[in-house]
Design a protein around this nucleic acid. Structure first.
Lengths: 342, 342
DNA sequence: TTGTAAGCGTTATCAA
DNA sequence: TTGATAACGCTTACAA
């Protein structure tokens, strides 16, 4: 590969002019610029990342800490780091994917060696060590989630506490008394998945405050149909009149179809709301089920903006919290008259 | 941050000794080594990635080209690049996640700038430009898939051609005549997803050769139950006696449960085989359904080994093809007596 | 508008 | 076993 001097020679200019032509940090006359770019093209020149890093101390690389853990719902997980990488790319950054279960060590390695300009934490648990250790990275750090301790990093997330409240209040306004919450995969709660626990806690709190009954149904383990049957039994047996689901849309859809063929009316007999179902779902839309979707794209964009600012303008991220207000997409499955969207 | 000279000074040795102590490329006496490591520790020293890159021309970084495309089944996609990153990590490499839809440009950027030591291509389509352009990267490249043109890169994949043959032959041996293939999400075929098309073609070829009927059922678009009902209708109407599914396990499970409650016997009335269902599935195991699982972990490990070899020993990858033999996990859902595992 | 030259922090060669 | 030192390719302050 040719280097900057080959290009300079060929274009008949000095190396600094070539450097400035590429970085744009100094004006270069149009003619000179043209000659340089042509020479670079002919020589198939690209600036060496190592050399650039060594001098400039900025590499346009961020670390994406996405630890692999047993019991993870990978399908919904994937959305986040794909979107995150894509958002970073839009802002001129490449993403280093760190998947080691103990994230801290890897993050330290890539930040201390000046490989990564910033850090994004994904899949946070309530007592996430990666967040508590954020101060030691020496680089801006933003968490896609809301760990308990977050003094040294920024946090971006949906406001799951509010989501729980909104869900319960919507049910209350529709006159519901006996709620059933369909949990996501059991492993997720056991391992302490941050947002799932926040939502769950909020649901409990608000159900209690509003004097409603809240029953929990653990996520499906065996066959969809057996699960569905069990849910139907509970609805009948315990006279459930409000269903809030964090299960995957296709499964909630099955539950709904079976409810209807069992003669139940939605929302007259049972109100149904899908929570955190992974984007807005065509299947649920078809069934007319209201939902409060997750918004990976928008959250990742916000996180990326925050991080870029911190990296490029030195803005401090410590302790900043950005909670996005959940949206209730009302399809009249909670009460007949549409409620106001949040 | 302190640099190598600070460490050298503190340990009372020269910089080169410190360098060798870290790289291990030259023996260092135990006492010296100790002093150096302690000094490094006290100073919180870590070698600068940029400087190291500039000199050594190797960065322990690979590029993972994982383009985002509309119509992708992200759930199954995710498994691959998570595993890939994890395999690379095990071998001492970090992974750069490239998600731009036009992968070639990004790959060129990170290889020509000496950022990445090697390239892994994921989610290949039959006429994948990334593979045809592999020679222009100037770095070893391995594809996780089998694009038509692959003279400049290595290919690692399950042998989906053989998988199709094995599936059809298993059905033939069990005396089946009329097969139904349950396709994955429709979008995947339309966009030309490599392995799905190879499997489909192979199924068609072998069904024809063995004089069997093969009918195709497009992937589910609406509700699981509507889809299931439609499949049942077809089985009845067309007297299907062999079912091969590439749909997600939970959905095939639903189909199977409904078949049984409809009075069908598996395998006596209809033989059932799950193909490419994403690892081995607990749900299908419970139902006693045979499967030929995907093997992300093992494929990624092979790809990583190949790439590491090429990067570290200069082995050429051009044109190498590594096809893994599919495994038939026989749970007696094709014929009563177990068949020999492949 | 352009050029000169001093580093950046490592690695590796050569010498001791 | 260890040390001194010249690269590596680029960026940027300073000079013209």
């Amino acid at each position: 590969m040719s280097d900057i001097r080959d290009v300079a020679r060929r274009a008949g200019v000095s190396v600094s002019t070539v450097s400035y032509a590429f970085s744009g940090k100094r004006p270069v006359s149009p003619g000179t610029y043209q000659r340089i770019m042509q020479a670079a093209d002919e020589l198939d020149y690209a600036p060496d990342a190592g050399a650039r890093m060594l001098r400039a101390k900025r590499n346009q690389i961020v670390a994406l800490s996405a630890p692999l853990r047993p019991g993870q719902n990978r399908a919904s997980y994937a959305d986040y780091f794909i979107e995150m990488a894509s958002c970073e790319h839009d802002r001129g950054y490449d993403s280093l994917l760190l998947t080691a279960e103990n994230g801290v060590e890897d993050i330290r390695r890539v930040t201390r060696s000046n490989l990564a300009d910033g850090v994004v934490l994904m899949d946070l648990v309530d007592d996430d060590i990666r967040a508590t250790q954020a101060a030691s990275y020496g680089r801006p750090c933003v968490a896609l989630g809301l760990p308990r301790q977050h003094t040294a990093c920024a946090c971006v997330d949906l406001d799951f506490d509010l989501m729980g409240r909104m869900a319960v209040e919507a049910m209350a306004e529709a006159g519901r008394k006996r709620l059933l919450f369909l949990e996501d995969l059991e492993g997720e709660y056991r391992r302490g998945s941050g947002f799932r626990l926040i939502l769950l806690r909020s649901l409990k709190t608000w159900a209690r405050r509003l004097g409603m009954d809240l029953q929990l149904e653990p996520g499906p383990t065996g066959s969809d149909l057996a699960y569905t049957q069990q849910v139907l039994d509970i609805i009948h047996h315990d006279r459930i009149d409000g269903l809030i689901g964090q299960i995957r849309p296709s499964l909630l859809d099955t539950v709904v179809v079976r409810m209807r063929s069992d003669g139940m009316n939605i929302p007259d007999d049972v109100a149904v709301l899908s929570c955190a179902a992974g984007k807005t779902s065509p299947t649920l839309e078809l069934q007319g089920i209201s939902e409060m979707p997750l918004t990976p794209r928008s959250l990742c964009a916000k996180a990326a903006d925050l991080l870029t600012q911190a990296v490029e303008e030195g803005a401090s991220l410590a302790g900043r919290v950005l909670l996005e207000r959940p949206t209730l997409i009302d399809r009249a499955s909670i009460s007949r008259q549409k409620q106001e969207a949040a």
